[in-house]
Design a protein around this nucleic acid. Structure first.
Lengths: 325, 325
DNA sequence: TATTATATGTCAAGCCTTTGACATATTGAT
DNA sequence: ATCAATATGTCAAAGGCTTGACATATAATA
């Protein structure tokens, strides 16, 4: 790889001059500018960002830690984050924790070693303390660390309310919420609060079933749903905390000879693309994935610029009715 | 962020000594080693990888260019690539081209500026020439650039054969292959060859329908399939070039009142997780995504090490029978 | 003509880390 | 007492780039 020196030499100018055209500062004649660009072209020169970052103390790198990009929700979220990062001159370093605390810790250290300008945390297997004192701009998704660190989440409580109201309005009298582990202090737990409050308000029987915190575990989902269907055969409404779980619920119900939505109604969460591809299409609570992605990048940028920012970002959800309700 | 200097100062040793414990070279007493580690801990020191990379002329970064991580197949592939990259001490810089040649070109330049150790190309919107002379280790997925640059693909021809044989053996007499644009010289075009050869061998009527090269275009898929179903109402077998397209095909067929698989049989490609979640489960040709991911990283590593490597990597496919055939 | 804006050059420090060359001390073994 | 292994230190260069300070020269303007 050629260096700025090679360019200067070949173009017959000083490195300072090349640096000046590269960074658009000081006086440069059009002729010199053109000559330098031409030489860079000829030498196939690309300024070394490692050296630049080292000097500037800014890498334009954003670290993104998520459970897995193979999960449709995180895949779509990552897609939007990557898009807006690129728009704002950032590159994204992808880290999949696979819900392994050791790996997550490792990744955080790695990101610090690489001097990322900020970290977007979509995976939360560590204790809250571990995330403090990272002294790097952070944005958190679906988890509140403290008042200093901004978080983004969808309006989980409202999502729970909307889903539950729908089930009840359609006539469900015995509803279940299948969600992640409530021990983890995730903001998504509010979905369960919305669910319970609404069910109680309407005097509807309700139970909550927690899954382990595995990202994807087809077997576990199937088992939990089967057991639930056996233990509570009278359930006539399911609010699942992801469209994938909802999909499995549909599958198991149909397998058990229950008609959806006539015998049992099912509402998911997320509104991943897949939710509309399923047959029947899954009724769900839409998270504004694109807005979340955009905001995440913005919040990093704002912290970087020393601007003030909103620490609590709860984005609106929307009920999308399809065929499972 | 503290530097190696701060550590040396605080620990009361020289930077050379710190560097020695950091890199495990030269003589170091256990006492000093412990003292240095303790100080690093206290200062929350993380060696600056930018400086190290600059010096070593090696960044341990792999650039991954794909159409979109929101696409299930690429999401799963990315997941595996990230996994094996991490295992081998690499970090992944994620780039989503969204099938935009300008963006892809930009990304390539960006990756060079960042001195990535290698590039895994899963998006191919540029002319073959553009990929040559990148003088960086490259691995290509589903496209052959030249004999120097290694490629990986599934056994597309065999995939086409397996899918077609299955349809015919189940009694299909008029089959259609829905695939991407054949103009692009992608290795996946061989699926169509396998399809045609097999259909002709058995004397079965067959047609090929190409889609545009958009990653995801629900509308387009629906339209193409609807039009196909209207134009060729006698079609009784579909080989779709992705599970997503297959999913839409199932949906449209059921919508038109055709029974799957009784009236029309459908086979997909990829075997993304989703294919088994669909109702009915989609019969498909499985690409060995994990093996592809592992091999991609290995091929970068081998090129980096100056080892010899296999340029042509065609990985076996497998027929997965579910309920649409 | 004097002044100013424009254009380029030289020089050197600094970003953080690694590494080789070399020097000096302290051990323990012979 | 001597030698070698062990342990640490000093010093400086290198990696590629940016930037400020200063110097110089040409062209345009007052």
């Amino acid at each position: 790889m050629s260096t700025i020196n090679d360019v200067a030499l070949k173009a017959g100018v000083s490195v300072t001059t090349v640096s000046r055209v590269l960074n658009n500062r000081g006086y440069i004649s059009e002729a010199t500018r053109a000559k330098v660009y031409k030489t860079m072209e000829e030498l196939n020169y690309q300024p070394n960002e490692l050296a630049r970052s080292l000097l500037r103390k800014q890498s334009n790198l954003i670290g993104l830690i998520i459970p897995s990009v193979a999960h449709p929700f995180f895949g779509e979220l990552t897609n939007h984050i990557e898009y807006y990062a690129y728009q704002n001159g950032f590159k994204v370093l992808l880290c999949s924790s696979h819900m392994d605390p050791a790996k997550e810790k490792d990744y955080i250290a790695m990101l610090k070693r690489n001097r990322v300008d900020g970290i977007i945390m979509g995976s939360h297997t560590l204790e809250v303390e571990e995330y403090r004192n990272l002294n790097s701009p952070i944005v958190t998704f679906d988890r509140q660390i403290d008042n200093e660190i901004p978080f983004i989440s969808s309006d989980n409580y409202q999502g729970g309310v909307l889903a539950t109201e729908l089930l009840i309005s359609k006539g469900c009298r015995y509803i279940v919420h299948i969600c992640g582990n409530l021990e983890l202090k995730m903001l998504s737990n509010y979905r369960n609060d919305g669910f319970k409050d609404t069910a109680e308000k309407h005097g509807v029987r309700h139970i909550t079933i927690q899954t382990d915190m595995n990202v994807f575990d087809q077997q576990q989902y199937e088992q939990i749903i089967q057991r639930m269907l056996e233990t509570y055969p009278d359930v006539d409404g399911i609010f699942a905390s992801s469209d994938i779980i909802a999909g499995f619920a549909v599958r198991e119900c149909l397998g058990k000879g229950k008609r959806v939505p006539q015998d049992i109604r099912i509402v998911g969460y997320d509104d991943v693309n897949m939710a509309s591809w399923f047959i029947p299409g899954i009724t769900t609570i839409k998270q504004p994935t694109e807005a979340i992605g955009r905001l995440a990048v913005e919040l990093i940028q704002q912290q970087l610029n020393g601007e003030s920012f909103e620490p609590d970002n709860i984005l609106p959800v929307e009920l999308i009715e399809r065929s499972t309700s």
